[in-house]
């Protein structure tokens, strides 16, 4: 990211934060800086237009399950806490046995962690519906313009219609 601005400056661009929801994709979180994230974020929220932005309207997306566990333990006693999303990692489906083994390992170990959502590229939609039928999911797609993009968007609409677990879908800019 070039010419970046702080999250505080970004939020100040909104005319009104009341009832807005944000999904923060935390790119560089690890076991050494997760508390720093929570401290700074708590502070930003307190000062955001007189505290209009609430924790329950914020999703924190984290890829590492162990870090996700640490974050959950740090926020679980809050009266209103951040929503947590596990970023489902890239899996090469071409290597069938390997991918089945990886996914089944996640299926078996997921109950040891807490997350409100699984966030995933739409290409894993059918896999996640099979593996985690009762979990809420955040689906998104990247790339593609014009026809390909419209086609993917149409699929997103279809999935959203037929599955109540898919509550939020990312509709990206054409890049």
């Amino acid at each position: 990211m070039q010419n970046n601005i702080t999250l505080n400056a970004y939020l100040s661009l909104f005319n009104n934060l009341d009832d807005r929801k944000f999904w923060f994709d935390i790119k560089n979180i690890d076991t050494s800086n997760y508390m720093s994230l929570l401290t700074v974020l708590d502070d930003i929220l307190k000062n955001s237009q007189n505290g209009l932005l609430t924790k329950s309207n914020i999703i924190l997306e984290i890829g590492d399950l162990n870090v996700l566990k640490l974050v959950y333990n740090a926020v679980k006693n809050d009266t209103t806490r951040y929503r947590l999303s596990w970023y489902f990692p890239y899996i090469n489906l071409d290597t069938e046995e390997n991918s089945i083994s990886i996914i089944n390992e996640y299926v078996n170990s997921a109950d040891g962690y807490f997350f409100d959502y699984i966030s995933s590229d739409i290409k894993y939609y059918n896999i996640l519906e099979k593996a985690f039928p009762n979990r809420k999911k955040l689906f998104w797609y990247t790339g593609g313009c014009v026809i390909e993009r419209k086609y993917k968007r149409m699929l997103l609409y279809l999935y959203a219609e037929k599955n109540k677990n898919t509550e939020i879908l990312l509709y990206p800019a054409c890049i």
Binding site: L7, K21, F22, N28, L37, I168
Partner: peptide, 11 residues
């Protein structure tokens, strides 16, 4: 929209 996704880096 009321919903936004934003990439964040911890500084």
């Amino acid at each position: 929209s009321k919903l936004f996704e934003v990439d964040i880096l911890i500084g």
